[in-house]
Design a protein around this nucleic acid. Structure first.
Length: 584
DNA sequence: GCTCTAACCTAATCATCGG
DNA sequence: CCGATGATTAGGTTAGAGC
């Protein structure tokens, strides 16, 4: 229907900026002759308005409840959109072949193929044809609660937020997306800052909907800078869960403005936005075009951010609107109690610290997973520490797997079975795919990790190549699910968060899990992968059963697909603010 | 720069389920 | 029957990838 609906997405940049000129304090801002002028203002003084529409790719600022312009603007971050996936013909052939062989392969098969194709498992799954009558499970009240909470914070969650919600709830991300679509359509009043529903009546500007750059999911998330630069850690914990916080320039450090009426944008990393290396245009400050009345803005949009000097363009994603983790939480690297399943930087750090100081959680040794019919996502899978140690180059591991590239750096070195991809292509009569570029050799990374016996964190860093990741990278992991605001390169994020020891983790991401890598079937002596697919199809890859099917008939995959066990899920819920508490 | 198209959106609609 | 909700479809925009 093509009505104006989505055109909301098109309306904001320069052309309709004027329509949004309805600041809380109309006319109260002095005009700047250019955005450059605004940018050159002292940082604490952004109370200028530029009559000119913002350059394309630049976001606007906003005012807080008191009408104060609180934010600078910057280039539009391509954060919320899933990185576009363009499959090569060979990849398509392989996927077709796979689904021809087994329309509903299990997680292990999908992951394996994903690794070989160099794409995310979720992408593999997306290509899976939906069986008749297949519907996502009914959303439970607790799941709905999480979603509603997220909806109140952000009506337009980016892919990263959706993935996170999917992880939290166990609901497939596409279902999450549909849920939000329906919710927006049917509950327009549930806007975080416009209870009256005014915000929802106006389609948000495309930029407004963007998730801050650091929460970009599909392309490697920007590496957060030291949080202190952008947000006083001391104030961060004070923010309530789910409450976006804002920092006003010129105010005392750590002063949290609270939930704003207006959304504002952050200046994303120049590296991400200006791949040419050319420095971005001067950042800009709020202009009247950007400051709209509550009724004129979809306030539920990702609006959090922080004011930062231009010198730290990457440092200001202290909070993630689409995710609970960034909100009200300490900045990255600030340890905070978090559910283990939450891939927040804090939880990650918790994991690491806990792993360094405590015995590994019980579980089979690394490498015991996939090849032995034990999916890494299953309870009892190797712990995160195990995975990290494997990633760090422990024996019996083929080495770290910083994303698909590393896997391809490892597998070819392993004599033995042909790749799954080759077999599929062969089965389909298609030529073998050259596959994704190998990328950095995992072996090399592993060796680097073994040089000396550094601390666990150092090992992790070395193993995952975090040090070698100069800021936001658009590396081979771009297609992976993102783990927002996670310090470090996408590689480490993928490697760490994919570790099956984290409850709620969907398990190893394609080509990412060191555990899976350790158990990669492409070892000498392993059976044909295609045979494995077929065999697995008959055994482990029991198709998902629609709701209502007997529990015993749901098969293994149903278990494998479930990111959270009921217990973990309940524990997660208990940890959420507003929860009645454990046992409730 | 241009084209293609994935990703995303709204609006309308249908299907299902429970009260 | 009706409301709530999940899912689908149609049609649109945006932006990334490839040429």
């Amino acid at each position: 229907m093509a009505s104006s609906g989505s055109s909301g997405t098109s309306s904001v940049t320069a052309n309709t900026a004027s329509a949004r000129v309805s600041p809380a304090k109309p006319g109260s801002l002095p005009l700047a002759s250019s955005w450059k002028e605004i940018w050159e203002q002292p940082h604490g003084d952004v109370s200028m308005a530029c009559p000119l529409p913002p350059p394309d790719g630049w976001k606007h600022a906003a005012v807080d409840r008191s009408g104060v312009v609180v934010f600078t603007v910057g280039p539009v971050a391509t954060g919320s959109r899933r990185r576009r996936l363009v499959l090569r013909l060979s990849q398509k052939d392989a996927l077709q072949a796979l689904f021809q062989q087994n329309p509903y392969p299990g997680i292990a098969t999908r992951e394996r193929l994903a690794r070989e194709l160099g794409i995310a498992e979720s992408r593999v799954q997306e290509t899976r044809p939906e069986r008749p009558g297949e519907r996502g499970p009914v959303v439970s009240p607790s799941q709905t609660s999480i979603l509603v909470q997220a909806f109140r914070r952000d009506r337009f969650p980016g892919i990263a937020a959706r993935e996170e919600l999917a992880r939290q709830t166990g609901i497939p991300e596409p279902r999450i997306q549909v849920w939000f679509q329906n919710r927006r359509a049917r509950h327009p009043q549930q806007s975080p800052s416009a209870p009256g529903g005014a915000a929802a009546t106006t389609p948000p500007a495309p930029e407004d909907r963007r998730t801050p750059p650091a929460v970009q999911s599909t392309s490697p998330p920007l590496r957060p800078s030291p949080p202190q630069e952008s947000m006083p850690p001391s104030a961060a914990p004070a923010a309530p869960f789910g409450a976006p916080a804002f920092w006003v320039p010129g105010t005392a450090p750590g002063v949290c403005v609270g939930q704003p009426l207006m959304i504002f944008m952050v200046q994303p990393s120049p590296g991400a936005l200006w791949p040419s290396g050319k420095p971005p245009p001067p950042a800009q400050v709020a202009g009247p075009w950007a400051v709209s009345s509550p009724a004129g803005t979809a306030l539920g949009q990702p609006g959090q951010g922080a004011i930062l000097p231009p010198a730290q363009p990457e440092a200001h994603i202290p909070r993630w609107p689409g995710s609970p983790y960034g909100e009200g939480a300490a900045p990255p690297l600030e340890p905070q109690p978090q559910p283990r399943s939450l891939p927040s930087p804090t939880s990650l750090l918790d994991e690491l610290l806990a792993a360094a100081g405590a015995p590994a959680s019980p579980g089979p040794s690394p490498g015991a997973a996939a090849d032995h019919g034990v999916d890494p996502a299953l309870p009892g899978a190797p712990s995160l520490l195990d995975g990290l140690l494997v990633a760090a180059g422990a024996p019996a591991s083929p080495g770290p797997s910083p994303g698909a590239a590393a896997d391809h750096g490892v597998d070819p070195a392993l004599p033995g079975a042909p790749s799954l991809l080759d077999e599929l292509l062969a089965a389909a009569g298609a030529p073998a795919s050259p596959g994704p570029s190998p990328g950095p050799s995992a072996v090399a990374v592993q060796q680097a990790a073994l040089a000396g016996t550094p601390s666990l964190l150092e090992q992790i860093s070395a193993a995952t190549g975090i040090h070698a990741t100069p800021g936001p990278s658009l590396g081979p992991c771009a297609g992976e699910r993102a783990h927002l605001a996670l310090p470090g390169s996408p590689s480490v994020q993928v490697a760490l968060l994919a570790a099956p020891g984290i409850p709620g983790s969907p398990g190893p991401f394609p080509g990412s899990s060191p555990v899976v890598a350790g158990a990669h079937p492409a070892f000498p002596g392993s059976p044909s992968l295609l045979e494995e697919i077929l065999a697995a199809t008959a055994t482990r890859d029991t198709p998902w059963s629609p709701p209502g099917a007997p529990a015993w008939d749901e098969g293994v995959e149903a278990t494998l697909e479930a990111p959270l066990s009921e217990e973990d899920y309940q524990a997660l819920l208990d940890m959420l603010p507003g929860s009645p508490g454990p046992g409730a």
